[in-house]
């Protein structure tokens, strides 16, 4: 039994979640403050993966990063970086595809905090970063946990977008969801079942943990 798709999936989900934490939190904070046309557009773009068929997103990523075309060719020539059919490409696709699951709940939670919390911190001489770290983030812990778990779990379940940009290369881009599909294609139902049970168990434990931790108040991914 080849368990490399499971490890690859866990590695992909961990890296994606970590990257989205680093990038998504400041973006969520920025989006949570005030409104502007630019913010509306950016928020719409971030939300698109929720409604767009994964294959469509994967198709455009494939075109954008193909070494035969503009951006992909430039990345290949200038930095010797190739996203198509590589693990890096899976990370990029997962990052884009899971963005709404990290940014949405965090942005919503930040918006619900009274503005006076941050203002009180500023008048105590604290910087924006100190305020974010010590006052805002600790007070949105349940939503932050929800966002992290949803991002991780959603990345575990990706199929269309990773298949389009990564293909099915064993040990490189064959993640668990693709291994399930591949096993069924080969009529190896036992292997498909093993991968499926492992994925099901991991995601169920994660989601139930969030419900328990948040005292049965798990947030909707759209909140």
């Amino acid at each position: 039994m080849d368990l490399s798709p499971i490890w690859l999936t866990l590695k992909l989900a961990s890296i994606t979640t970590l990257l989205l934490l680093i990038v998504g939190l400041p973006v969520a904070r920025w989006l949570s403050k005030g409104r502007s046309f630019l913010k509306t557009i950016i928020e719409a773009v971030i939300t698109m993966p929720l409604v767009l068929p994964p294959s469509v997103l994967g198709f455009y990523l494939l075109l954008a990063f193909s070494p035969q075309h503009g951006l992909g060719r430039w990345l290949q020539d200038a930095f010797d970086v190739q996203f198509v059919f590589s693990f890096k490409g899976l990370v990029l696709a997962s990052f884009i595809y899971s963005m709404p699951f990290m940014i949405g709940p965090v942005k919503s939670a930040l918006q619900q905090l009274p503005a006076s919390l941050a203002q009180a911190s500023y008048t105590l001489g604290k910087t924006r970063w100190q305020t974010f770290k010590s006052v805002l983030l600790p007070n949105i812990k349940p939503s932050l946990l929800t966002a992290v778990v949803l991002t991780f779990a959603h990345t575990l379940g990706e199929f269309g977008v990773v298949l389009m940009i990564g293909g099915n290369i064993p040990g490189v881009t064959r993640v668990a969801s693709i291994a399930v599909y591949d096993s069924v294609e080969r009529m190896d139902y036992a292997a498909a079942n093993t991968y499926s049970v492992i994925l099901f168990t991991i995601t169920f434990i994660m989601v139930i943990s969030v419900f328990v931790f948040n005292k049965y108040q798990a947030k909707s991914p759209l909140e």
């Binding site: 006076s116 203002q119 009180a120 006052v135 007070n139």
Partner: peptide
């Protein structure tokens, strides 16, 4: 020093 009407205490 600012005392806010809603107190603005930090719940954490």
């Amino acid at each position: 020093g600012f005392v806010f009407q809603d107190y603005a205490l930090f719940p954490n």
